[in-house]
């Protein structure tokens, strides 16, 4: 096991940030912590990267204990915090050299590992990090976290606030790194990114709600979801919420996702109900659950 977390709890004054959390990440696995702001993801990252002590529980990273062997861990892991943490007034090249030197290595020594990513920002190597675009900053931060060839890579919300194109490219990079044998623990508030992980932990309010592969999370979901749409979305939400047997109604892209309480739910009856409410262009059909559907129902 690359990461073992056992019954970790952490409170800040009287606020419980994480509560009795346990999970394991296998060597070479791409493991996702999926949850919104305030779920406790960053606290877990800080404990595992030895920047924060837990109140209870124990954890090992690359077979080192996070408390006793903290120095060894710092040499064997790469950490990209959520907030951009490079030196804004150093250039791209200077930042990378700085991090290489700190870890007692050189850019050349592990160039192989960062090559695919670094060539994308190399044209701007004389530019100050602070003047880079969001996508480029993110690539530089990843290079700096990789420069000492870590066994385990920690990425705390690397794609938050990043546009869909850059997000997609970033995940493609992670897949490549995984092929090189690096274990990756990554967190994200974007549920659609969960599908890119081998396994995920769904986390909310400091507790892990579920750990499984993304396929299993959706496959094991036992409720039937209907895609519904009509011309007036706002009115449709209101009317569906007043349908007697409704279980939940949520907007999901171009459709609403509707779940009914009844086992023998009849979509024709619902259609009639909506027609009587003067809805037009009504569509109702069965949909496949997504990670986000499951998350919202936990």
């Amino acid at each position: 096991m690359s990461i073992i977390v056992q019954n970790i709890s952490k409170s800040y004054n009287d606020i419980k940030a994480v509560e009795n959390i346990s999970f394991e990440v296998k060597e070479g696995e791409l493991f996702g912590l999926i949850g919104p702001d305030g779920a406790g993801k960053t606290t877990i990252f800080r404990i595992l990267t030895t920047l924060l002590l837990s109140n209870e529980g124990s954890a090992t990273v690359a077979d080192f204990d996070v408390v006793k062997d903290y120095k060894s861990i710092r040499n064997s892991v790469g950490y990209m915090p959520g907030k951009f943490s490079l030196y804004q007034d150093l250039t791209v090249e200077e930042n990378l050299t700085f991090f290489a030197t700190i870890f007692g290595t050189t850019i050349e020594e592990n160039y192989d590992l960062i090559k695919d990513i670094y060539i994308q920002i190399e044209p701007f190597k004389k530019r100050r990090a602070g003047a880079l675009s969001g996508g480029m900053k993110q690539k530089l931060a990843l290079c700096c976290a990789l420069i000492h060839k870590p066994k385990v890579l920690f990425l705390d919300e690397p794609t938050t606030g990043v546009d869909p194109v850059s997000r997609k490219e970033f995940w493609e990079m992670l897949k490549q790194l995984q092929k090189k044998g690096i274990t990756i623990l990554v967190s994200t508030p974007y549920m659609d990114e969960a599908a890119m992980c081998d396994r995920i932990a769904l986390i909310q309010k400091g507790k892990i709600l579920k750990i499984d592969s993304p396929e299993n999370v959706t496959k094991k979901y036992d409720k039937i979801i209907y895609d519904i749409r009509a011309k007036d979305t706002y009115q449709l939400i209101q009317d569906l919420k007043h349908y007697p047997s409704q279980y939940s109604v949520f907007a999901f892209g171009e459709y609403l996702h509707y779940i009914d309480k009844k086992q023998n739910f009849n979509s024709t009856e619902l259609l009639t109900y909506l027609q009587n409410k003067n809805h037009t262009e009504i569509e109702i059909h069965i949909s496949n659950p997504t990670i986000e559907d499951v998350f919202m129902d936990l």
Partner: peptide
């Protein structure tokens, strides 16, 4: 940005 899925939908409502 970063808001949980249910609140995100309540926000849109």
């Amino acid at each position: 940005g970063g808001v949980d899925p249910i609140t995100r939908r309540q926000f849109w409502e």
